[in-house]
Design a protein around this nucleic acid. Structure first.
Lengths: 233, 233
DNA sequence: CACCCCATAATTTGATCATATTCTGATCGT
DNA sequence: ACGATCAGAATATGATCAAATTATGGGGTG
């Protein structure tokens, strides 16, 4: 049983299953995390402790811990004067994210492709099929979830906990902005090089799989950059 | 005034200066962070809340927040059964760290080199001089601090908050092991390509500076890998 | 006379602590 | 060797205190 960060991320998108008395701060963390990743929270929006306590029905301490954790991961931003909110991406931040994602995700894809079993690949293909359905039906939330799930599954296959943790942190940073992109341009024109990656993995060509994922990352981040620059105008 | 993550890291190695009523959880976080970075805490060592409360003279809530934050950054590890401790690096982890540091720090060095002012370079040279003194005198703690300070200063110059945050997180992960390396091989044989980097920055050759820092990273991490593999035997 | 600015009060929000409760690990007895 | 009991440690709550933002009102100005 491999308890690495990426597996964890994949498992905890669904709340079902035999949850063996999960701590409250963990539940708060996961709910808030999902809100950030899938765009329930817009960039710039403030996040208050007391608001969370009554929204989640929890005490202050667990809420506080969840917030600190997400601040440490870059998903939330401490404004200096004790306030916490969803960060807004500057164009420079997008540049950094492009570089980082390219470096980290390409390496993860390379490792995943060299280690993937046929079952792994089938699982990825299933996710990608659901992703296609979400795109054609225009279901933004489902698109965001399945898209993230595809990448997170790839991380889990790569079996590289540190790189996976970094990649997950990056997702949290651009998640809110990605939602904005979808609201702006719809789901039709969003990138999806996943089929190329899956085919390359089936063929055992790790380099090609990594290259496909690199293209996917670049295209996605370019969409974000473009939407963001238009939004400023 | 640029309030990015790297500047923050540089500023908060020293505890002096006019601290405007810093929150307790922040102080606990910084002290614990320094303990981890500079090897007061060995890999595998447990970290308890109650132990910290009396060591730092603080309540449970701030201690708890500091621990969660460091767990989120990868500096500490939650063992599943409510226990928290300093993680032990596996050989695979070291591989990941080498890849990640190479990618991130090279990019940071590139950016820093293109932006550095003469004052910036002089500051780096001053740090490196103190580093040399620490090496010749065999002062391990000073070596660790100045070495980190050199890199952190470079991040601050690069003005890339997200990449800097990632790089800082990586330091926290191999910090305890780096201390072990020093205890094993002394300070004499430790890598220091800093002079090459400084010279390249003076000459305005950003590529050369980045290359020098890449060599520095690789040499340092190879030392860690080697010491770790010997330690297992 | 209406509008803006600044000082001050009120309220909201965050920070910390002390305490009760639950869970884990280990010891001791059978 | 197995299972109940016990100490210790973590989780979670609510109360209390401090800080910051927002609201308010008086005085001055166009």
């Amino acid at each position: 049983m491999n308890n690495n960060a990426a597996n964890w991320a994949v498992n905890k998108l669904s709340t079902d299953g035999p949850t063996p008395a999960l701590p409250v701060h963990e539940l708060v963390y996961r709910q808030l995390r999902a809100h950030i990743l899938f765009g329930e929270l817009a960039p710039g929006q403030p996040v208050t402790i007391q608001g969370l306590t009554e929204m989640m029905g929890a005490g202050m301490t667990p809420v506080r811990e969840a917030i600190r954790r997400l601040v440490a991961e870059g998903a939330l931003e401490a404004s200096g004067n004790r306030r916490v909110g969803v960060p807004m991406l500057s164009p420079g931040n997008v540049d950094e994210l492009i570089h980082a994602r390219q470096a980290i995700e390409t390496e993860l894809a390379l490792r995943a492709a060299t280690r993937a079993t046929p079952e792994n690949i089938a699982g990825l293909a299933a996710i990608d099929a659901r992703l296609d359905a979400a795109i054609t039906s225009g279901n933004v939330r489902a698109y965001l979830e399945e898209n993230y799930l595809f990448h997170a599954s790839l991380y889990a296959i790569a079996d590289a906990p540190i790189l996976s943790a970094i990649a997950d942190g990056l997702w949290l940073r651009f998640g809110p902005s990605l939602r904005m992109v979808c609201g702006r341009i719809g789901t039709q024109n969003l990138p999806d090089q996943h089929k190329e990656a899956i085919e390359a993995m089936r063929a055992g060509d790790a380099e090609a799989a990594a290259s496909a994922m690199r293209d996917d990352v670049i295209q996605g981040m370019e969409q974000v950059r473009q939407a963001l620059s238009e939004s400023i105008v």
